[in-house]
Each structure stands twice: as C-alpha cells, then as structure tokens.
C-alpha cells in the first residue's frame, strides 16, 4: 500500500507512535547526525545527504553487551534476561537498512540464529527515508543497491517536497500509516521520477564484473602493501561500517561478566594468537582482509557484496583511503603480478 504523509503531519504521527514504542529519529548532537529518542520538539535531520555518523547496526548488535554474569565462589552462571521493548527507527537510510538485511544472513540464519539479534530485530520497525541528493561519498548503486533500496525496510518514504510518499512493505509497517490518505497516481509518478534522478546522480564508482575472481587471484599481490603504507590501522572504517559485525567475547574478570564487544580486523590483536603467532602480521594482510571480506568472502556465504556503499569509511578515514579507489586499483592490478611476488 502507498500513502501520502504531509510533512506538517509528521510531528503528530511521531507523537502517536511514541505512545506505543520507543521512536528513534536522526538528530544533530555534537555537530553530527545521530539516532536519538524522539521527544516533543525534537528537530529531525532528514535532508542531510549523508546518514548518521555512527551506523545503526548497534541497535541490533550493541558495541558492548553483557552475555552472562558468573559467581566464581558459587560456580553459578546467570544470563541476564533480554528485555527489549518495541522500537521504531525512523529515517534510516536505505544503505543502512540493506546492511541490516546483510547482517541477517549472519545473525538470523535458520539453523543457528543469534538470540540477541533476533529479539531486537523482531521488536524493531524500520522506516527508511530515501536519498534524493546522495553525497559525493555515496556509491550504493555500484554495489547492487540504490538510493531507494527497500531491502528489509518495513516502510520507505520518498521526499516529495511538501509531503512524503509512503510505501509500506510489511503488515506492521502498514499498521503505522493506516489512518493516512492513500497516495494518488500523481504522487507515485513524482516519486518514481525522484528515484530515477537520484540514481542518475551516482556514477558507477567501479565495475563489479568478475571482481570476486579477480580479487581472489591478486591475493598475493604487492598492491596490499601499497594500501598498508598509509593505513593507520585504526578501527574507524570497520566500526563505522554498517555491515562489519566481528566481535570478541571477553571475560571481564574484575566484575565477573562475560561481555561481547565489537572487534575489528584492522587491529593487530584481532588475529594475534595465544602462541604469539599472528596470521595477519602486518597492515597489508589486514587491509586486504577488509577488502576481501566485503568483496569476495561475502559473496561466498550470502551471494552479495558485504558493502552497501554508505561511504562512511570514505568520509572518515583519517588518511583518505577511499575504498572505491582501492577497488579500482585492485581491478587494474594484473593477476599475473601475484606470481612474481
């Protein structure tokens, strides 16, 4: 079903939802966009070309989470009960929603689902807003998505200027807009035009034909050393990435808790083994891992790229390493070179 939501009614709508669920909307705090609980008078930040600085994956996979507590004296374990109330995330960008879809292939598999992820997913309604004006760092169309990709979104909104064109894809999404007037053919037509225009603004950042095979072939290339030369080895690209999901389980012995923290393949200690051996001893192997995971290994388990083109890593890399340029360089590296090394 499609509806028309006049912008002047948005506040009223959010107010209504806030009675039944926790509503998160993008707002500016500390100078950048963040998902924060909606409150009366909250100023929404929906027309920025780029998305929130911190990816919304932490709604489902918190950066630090206590899995269990233990009492060493009594040899007792206790798992804290998951108490998650219904939530609505309003204004999530299509790339970030697509990332949630990708992460579902990791955490919501039929045979081995992650209960923490599952519980949060079930309680969370995702309402996306498409991007009329993608930023220069965006490249969603190059990785098989688009500025209006509705992946796992319950609802997708298209900004028509005065109003939003609302497309509901799930029952629970539809229920939220049920009292709105239906959109007319004119709205739908206008939305279509906006979608096409937005996609047209994005030029292909790289070609993906045969990319996986090529990357696999240049696994031993010296190209990775070139990237590693300037790479600092910090965790910005992976922590800000909406699809990076690596975690480390740590026993916080001082407070008798087992905690799950995000981890990143860009850290030396990520792959460091207890023996002292490190299978990824230098930044070259680590930068390679990041690229290979997204553009090769993901295809093996999910048949999709593990990148949604949100551009956060491009924007915030302190040394200006641009994943698009890295892929272009990788694509231009002849596969024969590998044997020379």
């Amino acid at each position: 079903m499609t509806y028309r939501l006049p912008k002047k009614d948005l506040d009223q709508t959010l107010r209504g939802w806030a009675n039944q669920a926790e509503v998160f909307v993008p707002q500016k705090r500390e100078g950048y966009a963040q998902f924060l609980p909606w409150e009366a008078g909250a100023e929404l930040l929906l027309d920025e070309p780029h998305n929130t600085r911190f990816p919304p994956k932490d709604f489902f996979l918190p950066q630090s989470e206590t899995l269990l507590t233990y009492n060493r004296k009594l040899s007792q374990l206790e798992m804290p009960a998951l108490q998650i109330s219904p939530r609505i995330i309003f204004g999530i960008r299509p790339c970030d929603a697509r990332a949630v879809a990708l992460l579902d292939t990791v955490f919501a598999t039929a045979d081995n689902p992650d209960p923490y992820w599952q519980a949060r997913r079930e309680q969370t309604i995702l309402i996306g807003v498409g991007c009329n004006q993608p930023a220069t760092t965006c490249f969603c169309t190059s990785v098989g998505s688009s500025p209006f990709d509705h992946a796992v979104l319950d609802v997708l909104l298209t900004d028509l200027g005065e109003a939003y064109f609302v497309e509901a894809f799930t029952e629970r999404g539809e229920a939220l807009f049920a009292n709105l007037a239906s959109a007319d053919a004119n709205d739908a037509e206008q939305a279509d035009k906006i979608k096409q225009q937005a996609s047209a603004l994005l030029e292909p950042a790289f070609t993906t034909d045969n990319l996986k095979d090529h990357l696999d072939q240049i696994f031993d290339s010296s190209l990775w050393n070139e990237f590693a030369q300037s790479c600092l080895g910090c965790g910005i690209c992976t922590f800000l990435c909406p699809t990076c999901f690596c975690f480390d389980i740590v026993d916080e012995a001082q407070r008798d808790e087992r905690v799950r923290n995000w981890d990143t393949c860009m850290f030396r200690v990520y792959s460091l083994e207890a023996s002292g051996h490190n299978p990824r001893p230098s930044r070259a192997e680590r930068t390679r891992q990041r690229l290979m995971h997204k553009f090769s290994y993901w295809l093996e388990h999910a048949d999709q790229f593990g990148c949604t083109g949100c551009g956060r890593c491009v924007r915030y890399c302190p040394v200006g390493l641009d994943i698009r340029a890295m892929i272009r360089k990788a694509a231009a590296t002849p596969s024969e070179v590998m044997h020379a090394n």
């Binding site: 950066q63 600092l232 080895g233 910090c234 965790g235 910005i236 922590f239 990143t264 302190p318």
Partner: peptide
C-alpha cells in the same frame, strides 16, 4: 564517553 574505542587517536 563518546569514544568508540577505534584508537584512531593512538594510531594517528
């Protein structure tokens, strides 16, 4: 307390 512990400050 806004830190995300990416250690970019350290690495830079």
């Amino acid at each position: 307390e806004r830190c995300i512990r990416c250690y970019a400050c350290r690495e830079a």
